[in-house]
């Protein structure tokens, strides 16, 4: 029983890692906000699966709860909230017109960032201290983190920045779960609550921005500057 699990483990880990990265790359190459949301939803589902895997291997019941929360909040509630709020916003505002770096180049950069993540995590941690689960997920979480940051830097659509933020958050969750088998459940709940409230607030803001500025291009929000 134990032996077969160890054999199966790498495959599951690789599978979920690949799933997460594919979802992230889907974000990098897409323009439309709705596409992003579905990519995010897909990513969150895979993330919940990955968390459940970790929970299974670690035998920690808290992670199951965290996985369930992920599924509930990130895969269901957040996309719903964002969709509902943005329904009132005109469609033409919801498409990324011109990111700073073209989509083709973005993919290359994202790939580089994945490479960088592997390099960084290799240096960060001494090999001996890592189990297989952690060593597989750590670079992936780092990639999510960096790519999320990259799309936030690159994209001008406010909606997409929110999704970028959520991707970073996903990377964090994966990192936390893989590395430490979860924080105490109280804090996990606190973090989820923060994320949820954050999404609500940002969607209010998104609505206000679209009303006030008649655009969701954050490049246009540049009245407050020094020159």
């Amino acid at each position: 029983m134990v032996d077969s699990m160890i054999l199966a483990q790498p495959d599951i880990l690789m599978l979920s890692s690949a799933g997460l990265l594919i979802a992230t790359f889907a974000v990098v190459v897409r323009r439309g906000f709705v596409d992003w949301l579905s990519a995010y939803r897909y990513q969150s589902i895979v993330l919940a699966g990955a968390a459940a895997t970790i929970a299974y291997f670690a035998g920690a019941w808290e992670i199951y709860i965290a996985a369930a929360l992920t599924l509930l909040i990130k895969a269901i509630i957040i996309p719903k909230v964002l969709l509902r709020v943005t329904r009132k916003i005109k469609d033409e505002l919801k498409t990324e017109a011109n990111p700073y770096v073209s989509l083709r180049l973005s993919v290359v950069i994202a790939a580089l960032l994945v490479g960088l993540s592997y390099a960084l995590t290799r240096q960060m941690l001494p090999d001996s201290t890592l189990d297989k689960v952690a060593s597989t997920y750590l670079p992936v979480s780092m990639s999510l983190f960096l790519i999320g940051l990259f799309v936030m830097v690159n994209r001008r659509l406010a909606l997409n920045q929110v999704v970028g933020l959520l991707i970073i958050e996903n990377g964090l969750f994966l990192f936390t779960t893989a590395l430490t088998h979860g924080l105490s459940i109280l804090i996990e709940i606190g973090i989820f609550a923060d994320i949820l409230v954050g999404v609500v607030i940002s969607s209010i803001l998104l609505y206000r921005i679209s009303q006030t500025f008649d655009t969701l291009d954050v490049g246009e929000l540049e009245k407050l500057r020094d020159d």
């Binding site: 700073y100 940051l149 936030m152 830097v153 690159n154 994209r155 001008r156 920045q161 954050v218 490049g219 929000l221 540049e222 009245k223 407050l224 500057r225 020094d226 020159d227």
Partner: peptide, 11 residues
């Protein structure tokens, strides 16, 4: 002039 007003730059 670092303070360009663009949130992308800040990130």
């Amino acid at each position: 002039k670092m303070q360009t007003g663009k949130v992308n730059a800040y990130l």
